[in-house]
């Protein structure tokens, strides 16, 4: 004789960390020029991020790629240029500075912004709080089911947890 229930705990709170993904996309007929331009422009973007207060350890290269561009309308599809793409993810700990940091990076030459997202640096307390709510929710459901079936709850047999 047993009863199995699911409980859910939700804790909503303001994020304390922002992440922005941005970089430079450069096209040029000459690969060397495209590569050098991208490197210079990205160095300026990185300098702007640092000047805006982003720590070195909070800047991580996300992608670096070079694509050949061809003219597909020509029979032999000749190479018409190169596309160099370089991007980083920057972690911003002062949320109020997110917009100005982004603007500073764009001013410095970032011409590709692929995302802004948010997170919690230390979700431990929120998780603990959500866990308490989830267990209380499960307990209340189980007590209801027991009462409705003229039974009483005994000890817990198994318990498992999911998190998102």
């Amino acid at each position: 004789r047993s009863v199995t229930v699911n409980g859910e705990g939700r804790v909503s709170l303001p994020p304390d960390t922002a992440y922005i993904a941005l970089g430079v996309d450069i096209r040029d007929p000459d690969l060397g020029v495209a590569q050098r331009t991208a490197a210079e422009q990205m160095d300026a973007v990185l300098a702007a991020l640092r000047a805006a207060g982003v720590a070195e350890k909070d800047i991580q290269t996300g992608a670096y790629s070079i694509y050949v561009e061809r003219d597909y309308n020509q029979p032999n599809q000749p190479i018409i240029g190169y596309h160099v793409s370089h991007s980083v993810t920057a972690k911003i700990r002062d949320l109020n500075a997110t917009g100005s940091t982004l603007a500073a990076a764009i001013d410095a030459g970032a011409n590709n912004v692929s995302g802004v997202w948010f997170g919690l640096e230390n979700p431990g307390d929120a998780i603990a709080q959500a866990r308490e709510l989830a267990v209380a929710d499960a307990r209340a459901k189980a007590e209801d089911l027991a009462r409705l079936s003229d039974s009483t709850l005994g000890p817990v047999l198994t318990i498992s947890e999911g998190y998102s």
């Binding site: 004789r1 047993s2 009863v3 199995t4 229930v5 699911n6 409980g7 859910e8 705990g9 939700r10 804790v11 909503s12 709170l13 303001p14 994020p15 922002a18 949320l95 997110t98 917009g99 982004l102 603007a103 802004v116 948010f118 997170g119 919690l120 979700p123 929120a126 998780i127 709080q129 959500a130 866990r131 709510l133 989830a134 267990v135 499960a138 307990r139 189980a142 027991a146 079936s149 039974s151 009483t152 709850l153 005994g154 000890p155 817990v156 047999l157 198994t158 318990i159 498992s160 947890e161 999911g162 998190y163 998102s164």
Partner: peptide, 21 residues
């Protein structure tokens, strides 16, 4: 640009099996 952080949500689920007396 103006960036709105909105809210973050932590969702935790448990599955509990009780004995029934």
């Amino acid at each position: 640009p103006t960036i709105n952080p909105g809210s973050a949500e932590v969702v935790l689920t448990v599955t509990v099996k009780y004995t029934l007396n």
